[in-house]
Structure formats: C-alpha cells, structure tokens
C-alpha cells in the first residue's frame, strides 16, 4: 500500500540512498589512490606535495572531492540521526539534536572546503 508520509522523511530517505551510491563510487577510487595503490616503497609517505600533485592531475578530481565533502557530511549525520530517531526521543530534545547536527554539518562542510582550497 502506498501512503503519504512526511515529505521531509521521504526526501532524506531517498537522498541517503543516492548519496550512498555516490560515496560507493567515490570511495573505491579514493581508496585506490590514497590507501591501496599508494606504494610506500617507491613514493614514501603521503605529504602535502603528493596530495597536491594527485589533485592537480585533472579538474575532474577537484569537482569530485568538492562534491564528496557535502555528500559524506549529509550521509554521516543523516545516518546518525536515523539511529537516534529509532529510539523515539521526545519532541523538544529531537529539535535540539537536529539543530546541533545542522550547525555541526555546516562547520564540517566549511572546514572541508577550506582544506580543499589549500590543497588545490
């Protein structure tokens, strides 16, 4: 049976899946470049220069990483919110937690963008 639910819940449910699919593709390439195929015996430790060179190799990476920041912050905080919401917390506390999460999300996204700006 199809029923009308709160449009906000529907939107976050759908976007949790869409951002999850994006993060799946993103993390496979990210893990390959910075974790799995980073050969310590030939290139040494990851440092400012190696990260800058990787990111500068194509404009595609800059767009990719800029999208990653808001997507991962949304996916993580919305996921944590879904766990908290399962315990049916009272209305006022729920609004307070949502507000804290929103401020936290904004802080993380701003930090992420300034970090990328310095690495681009």
């Amino acid at each position: 049976m199809v029923v009308k639910t709160s449009s906000q819940s529907m939107w976050t449910w759908m976007f949790q899946r869409l951002s999850g699919l994006f993060l799946g593709f993103f993390l496979v390439t990210h893990l390959n470049v910075h974790h799995l195929f980073h050969d310590i015996t030939s290139t040494g430790l990851i440092n400012f220069d190696t990260v800058r060179t990787n990111l500068a190799s194509s404009g595609f990476w800059k767009v990719y990483y800029s999208l990653f920041v808001p997507f991962v912050v949304f996916h993580a905080l919305n996921g944590l919110w879904a766990i908290i919401a399962d315990y049916r917390i009272p209305g006022k506390l729920s609004i307070l937690i949502k507000a804290v999460f929103c401020i936290f999300a904004a802080a993380l996204i701003i930090t992420g963008f300034f970090t990328l700006k310095n690495l681009f």
């Binding site: 993380l108 992420g112 970090t115 310095n118 690495l119």
Partner: peptide, 10 residues
C-alpha cells in the same frame, strides 16, 4: 577532518 584540516595552517 582533524588531520586533513591542518592544510589550512600550511
């Protein structure tokens, strides 16, 4: 985020 944001400080 804590480790990477150090790029802001140089």
């Amino acid at each position: 985020t804590f480790v990477l944001s150090s790029a802001i400080s140089g």
